[in-house]
């Protein structure tokens, strides 16, 4: 695999907690990877390490560079949206475009202006006069016009309404993503990005607990709707999770052969949300 990010044994300790506890993973080129985890699992710390914004222990190579030592060079090929609404409040739309156009060697001004033309943003509008959704539109227009090899998104749609959220991911897919680009995204709104991901990573307590591509996910995990009479038999197969719906039980299995499961009931592919809940059981307990 042509790896864009290779991490092994990432560790980061804050005063009294371990944010990253030996996390290891690899991300290939041309993938859209979702890094999913509960609050405080280390998602943002992992992204900060990748972007060279924090110190950490362990090995990490991003596009062949060490983000701790070669950050300035790295940022020519990496872009990120750290959070919603982090654009400075005094910035005007036209100044933002001017500035990025003049400091970023891989910025395509025409492309950015075309994106902006599709929004209601005015050249003289300041960020403080915009709604949260409009700020994200501006940020996205700036970022999509940069021909970066890696785009990192940390909760990019938090607090946006569903129209903006849908539009955000649709623009990314249609106008930005191609086989030379890699996108790494963290979010809590798992259902909305489920269909655009090629890979999925779960992080819990600073460790990567699941790292798979979406096709393998469908083969490995199955959800079975089992009647009450067969529930005991299903429990014999060590399900990850069990929940009750309308007097029937839904079991979630990891690596159990499909014919075996089909004897128990209707088999289907689990949603990432259900898989997440099952994997993270007991996190806050």
């Amino acid at each position: 695999m042509n790896a864009v990010i290779t991490a092994s044994g990432l560790t980061k300790r804050y005063k009294n907690s371990l944010a990253l506890d030996g996390a290891s993973f690899q991300i290939g080129a041309g993938r859209i990877v979702g890094l999913i985890g509960p609050n405080g699992a280390g998602k943002t710390t992992a992204l900060k390490a990748i972007l060279g914004l924090t110190t950490f222990g362990g090995e990490l190579s991003v596009l062949g560079l060490d983000p701790r030592k070669q950050r300035d060079k790295l940022m020519e090929e990496v872009c990120f949206i750290a959070d919603v609404a982090v654009l400075p409040r005094w910035l005007k739309v036209k100044d933002a475009v001017d500035f990025v156009a003049n400091v970023h060697p891989r910025f395509d001004r025409a492309k950015c202006e075309a994106f902006l033309a599709r929004t209601k943003l005015q050249p003289n509008q300041k960020v403080k006069q915009m709604s949260k959704g409009m700020i994200v539109q501006l940020h996205l227009a700036l970022v999509m016009a940069i021909d970066a090899r890696l785009l990192v998104l940390d909760e990019p749609t938090l607090g946006l309404d569903i129209l903006y959220r849908k539009q955000f991911y649709q623009s990314l897919l249609e106008d930005y993503f191609d086989e030379n680009k890699t996108i790494l995204v963290t979010t809590h709104q798992v259902e909305e990005i489920e269909h655009i991901l090629t890979d999925l990573m779960f992080i819990r307590d600073g460790k990567i607990v699941l790292d798979t591509d979406m096709e393998a996910l469908g083969e490995r995990f199955s959800e079975v709707l089992v009647g009450a009479e067969l529930a005991a038999a299903a429990r014999q197969l060590n399900p990850l999770d069990e929940r009750q719906v309308f007097g029937k039980s839904i079991f979630l299995f990891d690596n159990v052969s499909r014919p075996q499961l089909e004897q128990l009931g209707e088999v289907r592919r689990p949603s990432i949300g259900d898989l997440f809940v099952a994997t993270m059981k007991g996190t806050y307990a």
Binding site: E76, A82, P88
Partner: peptide
């Protein structure tokens, strides 16, 4: 100020030392 309002993350996303 830009650390407080987190906008420094935007400037840090650009290739500026």
């Amino acid at each position: 100020d830009d650390r407080r309002d987190r906008s420094f993350l935007f400037w840090k996303s650009l290739p500026i030392s």
